[in-house]
């Protein structure tokens, strides 16, 4: 735990982190104001809150993760402390696991702060009405009859899925950062990799031929962007799925994300253990 605290200290010493926090808070406030529900209808408010990750949460998390994590793997090299730290008895392993632990905590903090802030903002004025009511509907699937999940339960489930997706991105940023050793190049690569699925889901690539569109859809679905917007957790065309199908098939995308995270960690470990050629 002590080593994770050291990583937190490193993280807060980055100037760009504070700039990202300031801009992120500004973006969160403006988005909450822009997408607030003014109808006063509780069901409508829940329906809207269940979409806030897609509307702006994914963008915000992507921004904070890419900026905040882009330097974490190259910090020792920049400060020229790597040759000392990595030659100590257990320095290499401890440093690696403290970075992995810090990344998991950082992703969790982003998701929790985002979820709690938007929840309190949306339902504070409505007196948290309908929290334990059964879910009536969502943009992601059709509810046939009575859903066995409550509004808050569904919100928590969505945020757990969001956390998995943010973790998928976080370790990818660390992997690219380990490869490039340059924060700006990492930011560029990860930013571009996020823009593609977002452009696909928001704009649609109708101009592509059927085969190319299928390729674009496959890339978007498997990329972290698709999972962060929670689009890829619907294993098929989202609005055709009824509630039971969605829940029943949820293990497939979760298995995919967990596998992707494990692959990222394995690659990261292999790269970390690799001896540098001077």
């Amino acid at each position: 735990m002590r080593h994770i605290l050291y990583e937190i200290k490193k993280h807060v010493s980055f100037r760009e982190t504070w700039v990202a926090y300031a801009l992120g808070i500004g973006y969160l406030i403006s988005s909450m104001w822009n997408y607030r529900d003014l109808t006063g209808n509780v069901q409508q408010a829940w329906y809207r809150w269940h979409q806030h990750i897609w509307l702006y949460g994914a963008n915000l998390a992507m921004f904070l993760v890419i900026i905040g994590m882009s330097r974490i793997m190259s910090y020792e090299r920049e400060r020229r402390t790597d040759s000392v730290l990595l030659t100590t008895a257990r320095g290499r392993n401890k440093l690696f696991f403290s970075k992995i632990g810090f990344a998991a905590i950082y992703a969790a903090v982003i998701v929790v702060v985002f979820g709690v802030t938007t929840f309190v903002h949306q339902f504070g004025i409505l007196g948290f009405e309908g929290v334990f009511d059964s879910l009536k509907g969502s943009i992601y699937f059709r509810v046939d009859g009575e859903a066995s999940i409550t509004n808050i339960g569904f919100g928590v489930l969505r945020h757990c899925l969001f956390y998995l997706s943010v973790l998928y991105l976080t370790y990818l940023v660390m992997l690219i950062s380990q490869l490039t050793k340059r924060p700006v190049v990492t930011i560029c690569i990860c930013g571009a990799a996020y823009v593609f699925p977002v452009a696909y889901y928001v704009l649609g690539f109708d101009f592509l031929s059927d085969r190319l569109e299928a390729v674009a859809e496959f890339i978007s679905r498997c990329s972290f962007g698709g999972f962060m917007m929670l689009e890829s957790y619907s294993w098929g065309r989202t609005w055709d799925f009824c509630y039971d199908d969605w829940i029943g098939n949820l293990w497939k995308p979760i298995l995919f994300v967990v596998t992707a995270i494990l692959v990222e960690l394995t690659l990261l470990w292999a790269l970390w253990r690799r001896k540098e050629r001077k």
């Binding site: 760009e16 700039v19 900026i67």
Partner: peptide, 27 residues
């Protein structure tokens, strides 16, 4: 001024991109 490239990218890039997003906003 900030002597930090990623921070400068954020400070200048964020408002720059925001201007594109305004067109899709209700406001």
């Amino acid at each position: 001024v900030v002597a930090n490239h990623p921070a400068a990218i954020c400070i200048c890039g964020f408002p720059y991109v925001f201007s594109y997003l305004v067109y899709s906003m209700e406001v």
